[in-house]
């Protein structure tokens, strides 16, 4: 049985088909890329899956539960976590408190009124920071962290919910080339260790082909291709509408 089942998912803005009759499956532990040109509907797709937007039509099942139109926090509780393209962290909190905020949300402690209720969360928060390589920076305000570190922090916050599926919106956008691969390798290690499924969008084809088990391609709100990286490279329609020649070949030739 697949972890995520998407059937006929549709969201229109006025006359624009942001997402149109999207259907696909995702298995547990699978790492899948969602690519497409700007405006193809990837971000809307993420917003629909994570509950930030409600679909006009279609259904989404996650781990056997119908999550269509559920509020974001319910979806998260079921084990579907996400990160944002621009790292969304709590700037005024230090790194540790960012993760603790995520943990207390999971524990339903956001209305707890005694400071000591936070203490038991500290160890787990430190462990999560360590997993993304931020244990040294636990006391630093998030606002002063480097961009890549903020991405790591966001990942730690997503992991705090012990998700089974991670939606990562452009995990390497804005990072220097060297840093990208470091982050991607760490990510992969974490994913494998916990048998997480990952759905991610990405512009860097090197990253896509390096880690994706499967690639989905969107254009004008519709899914135009699904397949292994090799199949996608060879897919004529993908080459025509999305890759405009060049990009795929670059990826092929890169080490």
């Amino acid at each position: 049985m697949s972890l995520l089942e998407v059937r006929g998912l549709t969201r229109h803005y006025g006359g624009v088909r942001a997402v149109h009759r999207l259907s696909f499956d995702l298995a547990a532990g699978e790492v899948c890329a969602l690519i497409g040109p700007n405006g193809a509907g990837k971000s809307t797709c993420f917003a629909l899956l994570s509950g930030l937007e409600r679909p006009d039509a279609g259904r989404v099942r996650f781990a056997g539960t119908d999550i269509t139109g559920l509020p974001p926090q319910r979806i998260l509780r079921l084990g579907l976590a996400r990160t944002f393209q621009i790292p969304a962290v709590f700037s005024s909190l230090d790194a540790l408190d960012n993760v603790r905020a995520a943990l207390l949300a999971r524990a339903g402690l956001d209305f707890a009124l005694l400071p000591r209720r936070l203490r038991p969360l500290a160890d787990e928060a430190r462990a999560l920071l360590a997993r993304v390589g931020l244990e040294e920076l636990a006391d630093r305000p998030a606002a002063t962290l480097a961009y890549g570190d903020r991405k790591r922090l966001e990942l730690a916050m997503a992991l705090a919910h012990r998700p089974r599926l991670l939606l990562l919106d452009e995990p390497t956008a804005g990072l220097a080339l060297g840093e990208r691969f470091a982050l991607v390798d760490e990510l992969l290690a974490i994913v494998r260790a916990h048998r997480l499924a990952v759905l991610f969008t990405e512009h860097d084809m090197d990253v896509v082909f390096r880690i994706a088990d499967r690639v989905m391609v969107m254009d004008h709100g519709e899914l135009i291709a699904i397949g292994t990286p090799a199949e996608i490279r060879a897919h004529p329609r993908v080459r025509a509408v999305y890759l405009r020649g060049g990009a795929l070949d670059d990826a092929e030739t890169s080490p």
Binding site: S50, G51, L52, P71, P72, Q73, L76, R77, R82, F84, A88, V89, F90, A101, A102, A105, R106, D110, M157, H161
Partner: peptide
Amino acid sequence: VRAATLGL
């Protein structure tokens, strides 16, 4: 928004 997606 982030807080809401985290479940706060």
